[in-house]
Amino acid sequence: MQQFIDAAPGVRLWTEQRGAADAAPLLLIMGAQATGVGWPEPLVDALAEHHRVIRYDHRDTGRSSWPFEERPYRIADLAEDAIAVLDGLGVGRAHVVGMSLGGMLAQMVLADHPDRLLSATLIGTSALSSTPYTRPDGSTVPVDELPGIAPEVLELWARPVEDHGPAAEVERRIEHWRVLAGDQLPFDTEYFRALEHRVIEHTGHHRTGTAHGRAEHEGMLRTDRLAANEVPTLVVCASAEPVFPPPHPQHLAQCVRGASVVEIPGMGHALPPAVLEPLATAVLAHTGAAAD
């Protein structure tokens, strides 16, 4: 079922619900400039066997409003959009699963609205905390000395995005996914081509937004509130992650009180077919335990 939610003045968000209406709600929050249909269908279906799964398009993506040029906003506003989606759909509390920027937004919700969450799962993201990382040997590493984004990703992100038509844009996005997916699993070109065709069809155009990269990023740290967390939290560690490589997941789990870590072998900063079953299994085990 699809529905539009008015999240703020001039902002309407596209949402989709799947699964039994009386099942425990689970909100999926995608990454920067990514639409809700970026969550793979097999993963959504697997989660919907146990949950009322909700996914949505951020502002300036997909079928939601594209307001940034006239009404610039903060990244923090994107986190409040998640709460607006729950409010608009009449959901009091939900499990939340966030990936990449979506994992940061989930942390902000975790910190600012813990009463709205049943559990949190954080994928491919870094801690919104200034707490140093403690190595297994007891030594510490300042946050700004943790491993950075892989050079090949930075090089790709530095390239100007030029409009050479839909076909060329799909190929550009496939190359993007190839780099983000890491080097531990075979890359399925046709899978990601089909994904991007779905995204373009869903959105209605092939333009690439840049609003989330330009939005105000200040005020995102939640060090103290994450350290006081009481919401069951799972951190997914992706062994081939090129954006937030280990030990970012371990650091995140140290910053969020009570968090645990599960590793998905071969996973990078993408959701190819090979990781969907183990990822769904990990998420469902976590949400099931949180409900006990």
Rank of each mutant, 00 (worst) to 15 (best):
P151N: 03
V85P: 10
T203P: 13
S65C: 09
L279T: 08
T61F: 12
A23P: 05
A215P: 02
L128T: 14
I200D: 07
H212I: 07
I123F: 15
L221M: 07
R193H: 05
Q254N: 05
I174N: 06
E169V: 09
P142A: 01
W66S: 12
G288V: 02
E190P: 06
S260Y: 01
T287C: 07
L234R: 03
A79V: 13
S126R: 04
T208E: 14
H113C: 08
L89C: 05
T125A: 00
D6G: 13
E69L: 15
E70C: 07
I123Q: 06
Q33Y: 04
P186Q: 00
D87E: 06
G92S: 07
E218M: 10
S64H: 05
A285M: 07
A94E: 04
R198F: 00
Y56F: 14
M104P: 02
P9Y: 11
V170G: 00
R55I: 00
D77S: 02
E70Q: 10
W39F: 09
L128F: 12
R222V: 13
R12Q: 13
P136N: 05
A238K: 01
R18M: 00
E216N: 15
T125F: 00
V91A: 11
F4P: 01
T125I: 00
R172P: 15
T210G: 05
N229I: 09
A227Y: 08
L117C: 03
R116D: 01
D137W: 04
P160K: 11
I75R: 04
R207Q: 10
R222Y: 09
P245H: 12
A94S: 14
L78C: 13
V143S: 12
T223C: 07
A21L: 14
G148L: 07
V170Y: 06
A24V: 05
E241H: 12
G10V: 03
S260Q: 13
D22V: 12
G138H: 03
P40E: 05
H212T: 12
G213T: 12
V143F: 11
E80S: 13
T203W: 09
L271Y: 01
V199T: 02
A181V: 06
V235D: 10
I29K: 02
I83H: 08
R257S: 08
G268F: 15
D87M: 08
G36I: 15
R198N: 09
G138N: 01
R74W: 09
G62K: 01
R257G: 02
G103F: 04
A106P: 04
A227I: 09
R173P: 03
L252M: 12
D163T: 11
G31C: 03
R18H: 03
P25G: 05
L43A: 09
H51S: 07
H206P: 13
T131L: 14
T233F: 05
V153W: 12
T223I: 09
P246V: 06
A127Y: 06
R55Q: 00
D87H: 10
E70L: 10
L128N: 11
